[in-house]
Design a protein around this nucleic acid. Structure first.
Lengths: 181, 181
DNA sequence: TACTGTAGAGAACGTTCGTTCTCCACGGAA
DNA sequence: TTCCGTGGAGAACGAACGTTCTCTACAGTA
């Protein structure tokens, strides 16, 4: 196994373990074991655990937004329908067995690292940009403001679903979003 | 110093330190030191750190909701004005020097403890009940649903303000809430 | 075959931290 | 005064864990 594949396997293991059980709760040795990679290799791929966590979050950011975008792009939707599809996708996510809240908010609360906080902010910024883009098409004159409001609803729904174990939060957020449009 | 006062001082120190710097980042010995209480006493007041954290969150829950309610009760407001006052209070909170996001969401992400998760859920339930009550007076026919929607906005605003350092989130949430009313 | 560099396994190290234990001082009761 | 219980200070313990080090095996090369 070369360094590149080791890095990929480490990231895959980290993404699963960190999201499922939390970052502090998962030792670096467990990630190493799950990936089937030696400790030496791990430290060749990532300088430290903090590094691995930042990489994990960046990878998750990409996957998360890609999946969201894929769902929004499904079928033939109106601009308004594309905005609302965001909340349908959230509903599916919340209902899944493996939903454990927002990986980024969790990581932000868990780690005391400015590097991690930076990645978290980047993720939220990217989501905001995407929501503004969707909003721009649905309501050209107030796309920016609408996008900002949608982000509130998305984050609110994720938190409520995560903390209170209430998957219906997505449905309610969708109703509010529909009212905004 | 008797046990009761020691407990109060420990709670006060814990509330400040845990919220400011995070739970994991603050050792039990630092809380002890800040409170001016011996380690023996601390373990007489609280069986473990987890116990102390749960007590801290319960204390914060009461203070937080009391301050919110006090602000809502200020002056002579219409039922609608009382709902919107919630977001004014959030705006003040976000703008403060000592704002570090939602203590409960942070704790939820940080601790892997069902006891803590329970307290967090209780807090959110209490906030939800309060919002429903406010909504009930502003729009009797749909108080329950409106309360649920307000919670999304409140939590969304807290997260956005905390992660993206954007105190204006409260203003935007207020606009959405005004539209709902 | 002899040599060299790299990889894997895991022992070892150092630190942090929650929790418990020890020792000593002191205050009140007999 | 003597005894006893309680409290304070902090040493000690044990576990967890991130990181580094050591030792051995082996693949490639001359």
């Amino acid at each position: 196994m070369d360094t590149e594949e080791a890095g990929a396997r480490l990231l895959a293991a980290a993404e699963r373990l960190f999201y499922e059980r939390g970052i502090q709760a998962v030792g670096i040795d467990e990630v190493r074991g799950a990936a089937g990679v030696s400790l030496k290799r791990l430290y060749q791929c990532f300088r430290s655990k903090e590094d691995l966590v930042a990489a994990y979050l960046r990878a998750r950011d990409e996957r998360w937004r890609a999946e969201l975008a894929a769902h929004v792009d499904e079928g033939r939707r109106t601009p308004r329908g594309r905005v609302l599809a965001v909340f349908d996708w959230l509903a599916e996510w919340f209902a899944g067995e493996d939903f454990h809240g927002c990986a980024f908010i969790n990581a932000h609360g868990e780690m005391n690292s400015s590097a991690v906080a930076e990645v978290v902010r980047e993720h939220k910024d990217a989501v905001l940009a995407y929501l503004r883009e969707l909003a721009e098409h649905a309501a050209p004159k107030r796309g920016r403001v609408l996008g900002d409001q949608l982000l509130l609803l998305v984050d609110g729904a994720i938190v409520v679903a995560g903390v209170q174990r209430d998957p219906d939060a997505a449905k309610r957020a969708k109703q509010v979003a529909a009212g905004l449009l």
